[in-house]
């Protein structure tokens, strides 16, 4: 069995019908459980007070905002190289999810920043890269809507996705590239494992990150199914119009 089998829309829909209930359930349990744990059962931070509870929304949403773009990049490359329609539709389906995650990260960051930094916004490298990433999301969604021919739209949005990947990388590593600005380094560095978050916050944070990841997967699978059905409907209606 090959992964490319799922480039077949029928097989993809059949697989997603089987997997989606598990993903929805897992996402619901982890997001609700992680947030309840984080909100009700964690103490205040000795410096940040109760604002530390915002971490359970801010970090997972920022993580998914960047990873959603990388998922779109992989799907776009598959479209450009192998011309599988499902991959182009999956990239299209992921964009609004990534855009909402970016808005949540920006909004919670601003709300958190005001009491801690004394400002809602600063032209800090990481914040600015994130804002540009959000604009790329909007541009990507608008480009899909603006072009009538789906293959041309998939081509052009794939190129836009490649360009925007620079800002997705910058959003992730801006703090390391430019050692200035207000934003701290990553709280959970995967490469070194030297996290700056205490255990009492770390466990619910990981559960929230897992929950946001599962929610992203569930939404992308579900929305890709929707895109496949809409495409099939357009094809059927066009066939009907030609034969009439």
């Amino acid at each position: 069995m090959s992964l490319w089998e799922y480039a077949n829309p029928v097989k993809f829909l059949r697989l997603s019908e089987r997997v989606l209930p598990v993903l929805w359930a897992g996402a619901g349990i982890c997001v609700v459980g992680g947030l309840l744990w984080g909100f009700f059962a964690t103490p205040d931070d000795y410096r940040q007070g109760s604002t530390v509870k915002i971490i359970f929304l801010h970090v997972p949403s920022a993580l998914m905002a960047i990873n959603a773009w990388f998922m779109m990049l992989v799907a776009s490359l598959i479209w450009l190289v192998r011309r599988h329609h499902v991959s182009a539709l999956a990239a299209r389906a992921a964009a609004p999810v990534g855009a909402v995650m970016t808005v949540i990260a920006l909004a919670t960051g601003a709300i958190w920043g005001q009491p801690m930094w004394g400002t809602w916004w600063a032209w800090d490298p990481r914040l600015t890269a994130f804002l540009i990433l959000f604009l790329f999301y909007l541009g990507y969604i608008a480009l899909w809507e603006a072009i009538e021919d789906p293959d041309t739209a998939a081509d052009l949005t794939s190129v836009l996705c490649l360009v925007g990947s620079v800002f997705a990388v910058l959003s992730r590593y801006a703090v390391q590239f430019w050692n200035q600005g207000l934003h701290q380094g990553t709280s959970v560095p995967v490469a070194t494992g030297e996290r700056t978050v205490s255990d009492v916050f770390f466990v619910p944070l990981v559960i929230c990150m897992l929950g946001f990841g599962l929610l992203f997967l569930a939404l992308v699978l579900y929305r890709t199914g929707t895109e496949i059905r809409l495409r099939r409907t357009r094809a059927l209606l066009a066939r009907g119009a030609r034969s009439a």
């Binding site: 109760s50 949403s61 909004a107």
Partner: peptide
Amino acid sequence: LGKYAVEVMSAYAVSLMLL
């Protein structure tokens, strides 16, 4: 939530509403 109650509650409200 002490003196940051508005900030924490509004962060949760905005995020959960968007999700």
